[in-house]
């Protein structure tokens, strides 16, 4: 699928997004082993997907953004940061990139990168060049380049 062009933001939305600390050191995509990473000046960072999303999509079960989750799970979820868009990404893997909107009232309202339709996340405790530390069985797993695409759902975006 061709990369999607960056969306044009309204002035009000641009002002609101400016209040949030969106990372600006994320450059492009690379693959280590079979794992998808985002490149930064300090080294690559692993990318993650929310694994229950496929079953949720197939069952028509909407997955809310983090702000809509039960209170006791929010601290955990906020350790997974939605990957912002990568406007300068090039190469064969960039062809699978897409964008989804997020909850405009949440704490992470910026547009989020997707890969094969899967929303992508960074784990806040990962270090550039180090092994992925954010895998949690049946919740978050590293994104593999061979991962089948997320089935289309018609929803504009998915949580968490």
């Amino acid at each position: 699928m061709p990369p999607e062009p960056p969306r044009t933001l309204s002035a009000a939305r641009s002002r609101r997004l400016a209040r949030f600390p969106v990372r600006t050191d994320l450059l492009g995509l690379t693959v280590l082993g079979e794992q998808l990473h985002v490149t930064t000046p300090r080294g690559p960072l692993p990318l993650y997907r929310f694994t229950p999303l496929q079953a949720a999509v197939l069952c028509g079960e909407p997955v809310p953004y983090a702000a809509g989750w039960p209170e006791h799970m929010k601290l955990f979820l906020y350790r997974y940061q939605p990957l912002p868009t990568l406007p300068h990404a090039t190469g064969p893997h960039a062809a699978h990139l897409g964008t989804q909107p997020r909850d405009p009232t949440g704490l992470r309202p910026w547009d989020q990168s997707t890969y094969g339709g899967w929303p992508l996340y960074l784990f806040l405790h990962d270090q550039p060049g180090a092994a992925a530390a954010g895998e949690v069985t049946d919740l978050f797993e590293v994104m593999l380049v061979g991962q089948p695409a997320l089935p289309p759902s018609g929803a504009p975006g998915h949580g968490p």
Binding site: A56, C59, P70, T137
Partner: peptide, 12 residues
Amino acid sequence: QWPPYTADFVAQ
């Protein structure tokens, strides 16, 4: 009572 998409995780 957890959301259905967390059922596999919490059932561990």
